[in-house]
Amino acid sequence: MTDTDATAKIAFPHRHLLGIEGLTMQEILGLLDLAEEAVEVNRQVQKKRRTLSGRTQINLFFEASTRTQSSFEIAGKRLGADVMNMAVASSSVKKGETLIDTAVTLNAMHPDILVVRHSSAGAVELLAQKVGCSVINAGDGAHEHPTQALLDALSIRRAKGRIAGLTVTICGDVLHSRVARSNIHCLNALGAHVRVVGPSTLMPRGIERMGVEVHKSMKDALDGADIVMMLRLQRERMKGSLVPSVREYFHFFGLDEEKLAYAKPDALVMHPGPMNRGVEIDSAVADGPRSLIRDQVEMGVAIRMAVLEALASNLPNH
C-alpha cells in the first residue's frame, strides 16, 4: 500500500473482478497479501493514501445495501479516490431506464472503477461489457459476491494461519446465496474442504458437482469442522414451499452453543451479515468468543482496498 511502485508487484491481470470462479490460487493469495498491508494502514491514525488519487469510483447499487456500499466507499476514500454513491434502485430504474442505458450514461462520465450490485445473476457482467472502465461485482443475484469470499478467506487465514486443509461448513440457504457460491470457489481454490448443509429445499441441484460435500444434518456437517460459516436466511423464505417456520428452521439449522459443540473445540463462527438473530444464529454464538463476525467487517474494508488497488494498477495512466 505504498503510494508508488505498488503496481509492480501486483499480479492481477484482469480488468474486472466479476467473480471468484476462474481466478487462480496465486491471484487470490496475491489479493490477500495486499489486503494484509491495508489492514495495517487502516489501524493507523493517518489512513489516507494517494494510490487512487485522481480516480473516480462510482458505487452503483441497484439493490440496497448499507454495509457493502459503505465498505467500498471507505475503501475508495482511504485510497484517495473520488467516490460517488448512486442508489439506482430509487431513481432511473423506476423511470424505465434499462441497465444498459444506465451503464452507457455512467460511462460517458468517465469513471475509472464501477462497483456494482444487482439483484439479477449476470447483470454485472452484462454491464461490464458496455463500459470502458474496471468493474467490481458487489453481488449479482444468486451468482457471485467475490469480495465477500475474499474477506472471508482473509479472516480465516488471519485467525487460523492457513486455509489449505481446513474443513469449512457453509450452513443454510445455499440456494439463494451468492456468498455461498463465491466461497465455494474461493475455498476450493485455496485447498480447504468445503461442506454445505441445509434443508433440501434450500440446496441447489448439482451443488455437489461444485466440489462440496452435501449434508442434511448439522451434526454430521459440523463434525470436525474448523470454520462454521452461516448464511443469512431471509424472512420472506419462511413461507410457501421452502421452509415452514422460523421455529422449525432454527431447531434444525440455527447455530447455537449446542450445535456448535459438534465442531472442533477451536472452531470459529462466521456470518456475512446482516444477521437474523434467532433465525439462523443465536446471539450467544454471534457475540461469543469464537465469533469472527466483527473481524469480517474489518477485513471487508481491507480486501476492497486491495481489489481497488489491484484493478487500478491495470488502468491506463494517460
Binding site: G122, A142, H143, R181, P204, R205, G206, R209, M210
Partner: peptide, 13 residues
C-alpha cells in the same frame, strides 16, 4: 434448465 449449470450461474432452474 435446472441442474449444475443453473446452480453455477446462480439462475433459477
Amino acid at each position: 434448465n435446472s441442474g449444475e449449470t443453473s446452480t453455477r450461474l446462480g439462475l433459477k432452474g
